[in-house]
Design a protein around this nucleic acid. Structure first.
Lengths: 243, 243
DNA sequence: CGCCCAACACAACAAATGTTAAGTCGCCGA
DNA sequence: TCGGCGACTTAACATTTGTTGTGTTGGGCG
């Protein structure tokens, strides 16, 4: 994997969603970055750890998750190529959740020292990163709405539409088909329901001709119905520089 | 209200949770700030708005909330004196939720221009603010866990314990009694359940001798039971500079 | 090739939560 | 002082979701 292809999804996203200056991106691309491969289900960061690097997802899918005392697990966010899932550790030491690879992944690691120096040197980079963490927070808030208020049926479509919009940004949607490499158990953990119930809802969506999910790939059967169910308003993704 | 008392809760929190430099705090206190009073239920920021100021809660309680198409509402976070609930608008223009006063409130408003200048001039202030938004995000993630995985009974105790810890930081807990000025309907909106069910759970907690909630004030009846139910692990609040 | 195991599928029943409806309480303003 | 209204309380019933259990499927690996 070349330096270009490591940074490509992040830069692609930043260029369309922010007014990122080319010099700032070049400065990023010049950072020393260590590539590491993770396998499906491998833990990248563990709750309580104090990492000294931030990671960039170059390829593959990861999730943030938390496990509570009785063993139940909640998936907090799904991360895709171009995401920086632990920028927050630049400002506080301890991760308060797990980061787990959903699929085989390639991650790039950049040391805090180098990042902090770059941020001081280039306020534009600080702005890009800060904004990125704020959009991440906005996505978390919408996730709360999804889990708290939408019916499971609508909830699943909303989750899928959000993921599709984010995957589009980094060129991962082809022919309206895209990867969502979560098992039904994991989808349930993302939605706050059991795998049995997730299975019920997926069957309903299939029977109703809305969408199909097979071996980690979504196929949209009826875009109109999908939109109607998801009630997706993407403003919270802040896709344009001024929004 | 004097300039001191406006900034006091924020400074109190920053001093214990971060290694805030006195000069940075003094620079903050010197910012031009416009006080405005809001009444119970008054909307401070409306979804879709493009504010040109950030606000500081000097006194009172606010909530962030989102309303979906069918009218259901989800409360996303509870904000207390010392909170900066819309710092994110420094980096993207549009608010993607409502901010509503729960009680009569006094808010201080500082213009984006002045804040941005200060941030450029004093990287220490930028760090304080960035960290603040990151802790806000961590609280949102725990909120997802609460709504997604905990039983309603445990969920309510967790919400209450979190609020107590945050209120303690700004000196708003006296004799283990503190304000939580949400109606049962609003508590339900925070937890993703109906007001009827909230009422049931509150009765159970009262009958079980855990806590009582009357006219917006919590009284803890059995601290040990409360802890057991809430399973509260405050690490996500990042209360000390190194955590 | 055939075994094995995780993921998927689905049914029956149990538990949690929502809905609707009714009545009570307590405060504020006319 | 009284009336009204929003918040609280509770019950009965409906619906959603969880639990348990039992098969099936499909792909990796000896």
């Amino acid at each position: 994997m070349t330096s270009d292809s490591i940074w490509a999804p992040l830069f692609q996203r930043l260029k369309t969603t922010t007014g990122a200056a080319d010099q700032d991106l070049q400065a990023l691309a010049a950072l020393p970055i260590a590539l590491r491969n993770y396998r499906e289900n491998q833990t990248v960061l563990r709750d309580g750890e104090q990492p000294s690097e931030c990671c960039l997802i170059a390829d593959g899918f990861c999730v943030r998750s938390k496990t509570i005392a009785d063993g139940r697990r909640q998936i907090l966010s799904i991360h895709i190529p171009g995401d920086l899932p632990n920028l927050q550790n630049l400002h506080y030491g301890t991760v308060d959740h797990d980061l787990v690879a959903l699929s085989d992944c390639t991650l790039g690691f950049v040391g805090h020292r180098a990042l902090k120096d770059l941020i001081r040197e280039r306020p534009g980079v600080a702005d890009l990163f800060w904004r990125d963490t704020l959009v991440d927070a906005a996505i978390s808030r919408e996730w709360i709405v999804n889990v708290g208020q939408r019916s499971t049926y609508n909830r699943l479509t909303h989750l899928i539409v959000e993921l599709r919009e984010r995957l589009r940004l980094v060129g991962r949607v082809i022919d309206n088909t895209f990867a969502i490499p979560l098992t039904q158990e994991q989808l349930g953990e993302a939605m706050g329901v059991t795998s049995v119930h997730t299975n019920r809802i997926l069957r309903d969506l299939r029977v109703d001709g809305v969408l199909e999910l097979q071996r980690g790939t979504v196929r949209i059967l009826n875009e109109h119905k999908l939109q109607e169910l998801a009630q997706f308003d993407g403003r919270y993704l802040h896709l344009s520089p001024l929004s």
